[in-house]
Design a protein around this nucleic acid. Structure first.
Lengths: 215, 215
DNA sequence: CTACAAAACGAATATTCATTCATTTTGTGA
DNA sequence: TCACAAAATGAATGAATATTCGTTTTGTAG
């Protein structure tokens, strides 16, 4: 057994033990590639649908070989799942931007509502992708459940509003359905054409949303 | 030219003219097969998604050969388009059941709102399919536009409500988004589990919807 | 500079799919 | 009962697909 073959044996042994070797030259996966893949998938699924977003096209759009995708993702489903969770995270980050729990319930709600509206208006690709996932079986139920957790602060706010007798004592599902969910309809590409959401309409929409749950 | 070959020539000529021959034995396509195909497609697209609803599975579920599908539909896209339009028609028929223009605006709206709620609660397959189509690019835009026409009576009712100063003077798109569209969220399979719509919740929901647009 | 492990790749591979073809079956009008 | 056109079919067909394989390239640590 020469030096090299010993090294290989030793390395394989340590790999089996799930140990990292700091003194060895290990090439890194570059995050740019991963992001390029997520971006390409987002774009293709949005425009062609999941059924016409093959790995070959995704690879071409991300400017790499199809085989490289499998270094970054286990398979196509894993790629979609990770994209979904990442987009959910981006959405939630935007939703609670500048949210300050000190403010009164209505002002807090207004802040969050407008944040979400702006996300849906400006980040149309991310927003449409999430709508598509939430209305089709392309994402497993357990992954969807994972993506739902981010909204807890909004639920807490509503609970505060109920206890302060400012809004109706109903389930947060009803509140979400009648105040936030309608934004998905209004920012849907097809409807946006016929009913563009300018600042005035956005104000009208917020008033409608607030009137629906206020006491 | 014998009798048969003349007959064939004559027949081909008349077919070219798009003429039906009442004195000839022409076998009919049976509507049961067409409906079985639509039903199978509905079920498969709902449960597996469009990407995993191949013609072979559709044929198997409808208990016929894949080749037979092409006697009833031009291709897969045509099958999906026709299914979409048919489900839209079923939806609209249900929506305006027992609708009587003589009643006052609120009562009329209540009737239609509950009709739609019941459709979404009871005909879950049809309803989920429509949600899936409206949020993905599997249906061409012009077909979607065609399916939208059925809702005109509701738009007229809202216009009447506005002129009678009973509801807010806003775009029907806003009204739809905040009163009807939320039902899609509440009857979504995933959310129905956590927030089941019993009669009490349905009443709450209607009040929320009405409060959002009433003056 | 050297060694090497992992990244990256292009070309297979083995399925799967929508659609077509050649043939058989069947409903219908006479 | 017969003739036949269209319905119905099972077996191709050919294109497309997700994933893998064998090899080359490259970043990194010594």
């Amino acid at each position: 057994m020469n030096e090299y073959s010993f090294c290989r044996f030793f390395y394989v042994y340590l790999q089996h033990q799930n140990t990292k070797l700091s003194f060895m030259a290990i090439r890194q996966k570059c995050d740019k590639k991963r992001i390029a893949l997520l971006k390409a998938t987002l774009h293709l699924v949005n425009n062609n649908g999941f059924h016409d977003a093959p790995m070959s096209k995704i690879a071409k759009m991300a400017e790499m070989s199809p085989a490289t995708i499998y270094i970054y993702f286990e398979n196509k489903q894993d790629l979609i799942n990770q994209l979904y969770l990442e987009m959910k995270a981006v959405f939630s980050a935007q939703a609670f931007k500048n949210y300050n729990e000190e403010q009164c319930v209505k002002e807090s709600f207004k802040q969050i509502w407008y944040n979400i509206a702006k996300f849906k208006l400006n980040q149309t690709e991310e927003s449409n992708f999430l709508s598509q996932c939430d209305n089709t079986p392309i994402i497993d139920e357990n992954i969807k459940r994972e993506g739902l957790k981010h909204l807890q602060p909004l639920v807490n706010l509503w609970e505060r509003g109920v206890s302060e007798k400012i809004i109706k004592p109903v389930s947060p599902y009803l509140m979400y359905a009648f105040t936030i969910y309608p934004l998905a309809f209004l920012t849907n590409t097809q409807h946006k054409e016929h009913c563009p959401l300018n600042n005035e309409k956005l104000k009208e929409a917020f008033n409608i949303a607030w009137d629906s749950i206020k006491l």
